[in-house]
Design a protein around this nucleic acid. Structure first.
Lengths: 220, 220
DNA sequence: TAAATAGTGTCTATCAGACACTATCGA
DNA sequence: TCGATAGTGTCTGATAGACACTATTTA
């Protein structure tokens, strides 16, 4: 007789603020919280995304409008006893999160100071970060983490945070300029306030030429 | 009551030969064959990969040793009536396929002359090809489609087939040489037979610098 | 001897990557 | 006036990309 595996889905929910990436985790209220990715069992009247959106809304209190980007990551499978569970994981990006009521304990952690997690959750998070890292180099995915209006210093800082490498300010600006992905939002009103920009395109755009870090930096 | 969606998995099974990519499809034996990706329902005592490997072996007659590469592509969901089905798709690469007995009608089609397929299958195939295309530029994935020993003309031809673009012979060779991913397999025995090479590494390697086609080709 | 194939080298334009100073503002 | 921040330009080395001929083999 055919019996399908259980199906669950969960989300790596990231946001960026001031040079740090944060992830939102949940824990069942208990003396010693065991943190995990927010997720839900999917039943056959739903899709994984509808179930997940609903859960993030009700149990994490995430407003749907705050989600700026969503992408499927990986589907993993686990054997519990002799039965398997399929887990579909997604990456969610958000600018700001305004938490409303939630039914679970929620924690927001800097991505490099995570609490103890299951190996499966850790692995998904690592994968999410590597995808985000890679996409930062060849797309405008950073726009979903930055505020709508920002200055180039903020942009560079977010870039450096996500890619985990420092870049030269002038080279970064030169590159951004030549990529032609930003529009000036406001002239510097007074003498020396930073110029403000926003992304030309509100959807994900792929860069004709990726960001430099092609890692060859040979010294002569 | 919780009832899980159905779970199925299927494979985009590709092979390369003489400047063409081929895909293996199946059809239930019928007057008018309706082709589709080979796949199988997954039940809860299996994982999608074990189920898929088994099915490819029995219904397509694919020998396991002929599979050189396997990668998860995407998990899609469909509503049939009011119940959903989760479909986990994989990319399989193979050098040669030696078909043994199969329980289904099998067809091998050039990738650009496909029969009529469901939109879902077409979409997965397009995605598989775009992934293969992209990976060809920044990894040694081509090694899983080429014979173990080959000459540079063959390599270039496979590269051009997969990426759908012509490249200059000298530039291609220069690039390959500087990437240092090949070893000479045999000196040209007699005067003018092609030099034979094989990949240094039998596993997938990522190129420190991707293949050129960064699409700028400006004419002056 | 004509046609197909294997192999090879150079030049130029572009870009990545290194590097330093000035102006302004606020403490 | 000191320190922090915003903004800007140049030089060099590497390489992507364009381009043509020779040697050999086989029909």
């Amino acid at each position: 007789m055919y019996v399908a595996p259980s199906v669950v889905s969960n989300a790596v929910l990231l946001q960026y603020s001031d040079g740090e990436l944060f992830i939102t985790l949940v824990a069942d209220t208990a003396a010693k919280p065991q943190w995990r990715l927010p997720g839900v069992a999917v039943n056959r009247t739903q899709t994984s995304l509808s179930a997940l959106d609903h859960t993030l809304h009700t149990t994490v209190g995430l407003h749907r409008e705050d989600i700026t980007y969503r992408e499927q990551l990986y589907t993993s499978e686990f054997m519990f006893g002799s039965y398997s569970t399929v887990c579909i994981s997604y990456l969610y990006l958000s600018r700001d999160i305004r938490w409303s009521k939630s039914t679970q304990q929620i924690g927001v952690f800097p991505i490099y100071k995570l609490p103890v997690l299951s190996e499966a959750d850790s692995s998904i998070i690592r994968y999410a970060l590597s995808r985000l890292h890679a996409k930062t180099l060849y797309s405008t995915i950073t726009s979903f983490l930055l505020p709508k209006v920002f200055d180039l210093t903020q942009f560079q800082r977010a870039f450096e945070t996500i890619t985990q490498q420092k870049v030269d300010k002038r080279n970064f600006r030169k590159k951004v300029q030549q990529l032609d992905i930003l529009t000036t939002y406001k002239q510097n009103s007074s003498a020396k306030e930073p110029l403000l920009y926003s992304f030309k395109d509100t959807s994900l755009a792929f860069l004709p030429k990726p960001f430099p870090p092609r890692k060859t930096a040979k010294k002569s």
